[in-house]
Amino acid sequence: MPVFHPIDVDEAVELLARRGPRRILAGGTDEMVRINHGAAVGEGEEIVCLNNITELRSWAFESDRGVLVIGAAVPWTELASGAIATLCPSLAEAARTVGSPQIRNAGTLGGNVATASPAGDGLCAAVALDAVAVIRSAAGSRRVPVAELVTGPKQTGLGPEELITSFEIPLTEGYQGYAKVGVRNAMVISIAGACLVVDEQHGISRLALGSVGPTILRCPEAEPLITDVILNRSGNTARLDEIVDSVRSAARPIDDHRATADYRRHAVGVLARRLVTRAISAREENNT
C-alpha cells in the first residue's frame, strides 16, 4: 500500500488516473478509522494523501459572481467561525455540530460530501445552499450540484479517477440555519438534521433534511409554504402545522440502531418548525 503525497491538484489527478485500487486520504476522520481497523489495507492499494495541496485548503469570496468558493480540504474549524461563518451561517452552524474540536480540526467538507453519509452535517448544508462541487480529473473538470452528485447512502457519481477540489456556494440574503438531534449535545452523529436557507432576493426557500432518507432530501412541497410564512408574514400556528406535516411526509426514514423511523419523522418536523420560527424571529429583528 504505497502512500503518495502530491503537492498540487495536477499531480493528484495524475495519480488517480493510474490503474489499480486507490483511496483518497484528506482529513482522515473516516478513512483512518477504516485503515486502523484493517479495512482499507488491500494488496496493491494506493493511497493518495491530500495534506500537502495548499489550494485545497483555501477559500475565497468571488464578489463579482456572488459565490463563495471553498476548497474541498478546508477543515470544519475554519468553516465554523470568522469570515466564512458571516458569509454562510448555515454551513458554519453545521460545522460547529460536527464531532469535537479534534475532529473539526481535521475533517473536511470535501470528505463529508464524498463519504455521502445521509447523516453528513456539511452535506445537508451543502444541499440546502445549492452548492456545486467542482470536480477534477486528468481528463478535465466538471461542475455538479452536490444534490445530484450524492445518489444514495455512501454512493456518489464520482469516478475513481476524480477528485472534488472545491465547492461553489451562491450567497443569498436572508435567514439560514442548521439544526440536528442526537443523543448528546456534542460529538454526535445526527439522528435527524435539517438546514433551511431563505433566499429573499429570489423569493424562495430551500429546506434539506438529513438522516431521514437514503440521502439528503429536499422538501419541494413545504418550501413554498415556508417562503410564504417567512416573507409574507403569514405565520400562524396552523400554517406552521401544515409545514411540519409536509416536512414529515417528505421524510423517508428507516429504523436502525440509532433511532426508529417514527422518532426520526417526528424529530425532523420539530427541527423544521424550529428553523422556520427562528427565520421569522430573525426577520422581525432585522425589520425593527
Binding site: G28, I103, A106
Partner: peptide, 17 residues
C-alpha cells in the same frame, strides 16, 4: 498538537505529517 491544532493522533497517518 499538529502544527498548533489539536487532533486525534489515531486519525493522522504518520507518514503524511
Amino acid at each position: 498538537m499538529l502544527d498548533g491544532n489539536l487532533v486525534c493522533a489515531c486519525l493522522v497517518m504518520a507518514s503524511t505529517v
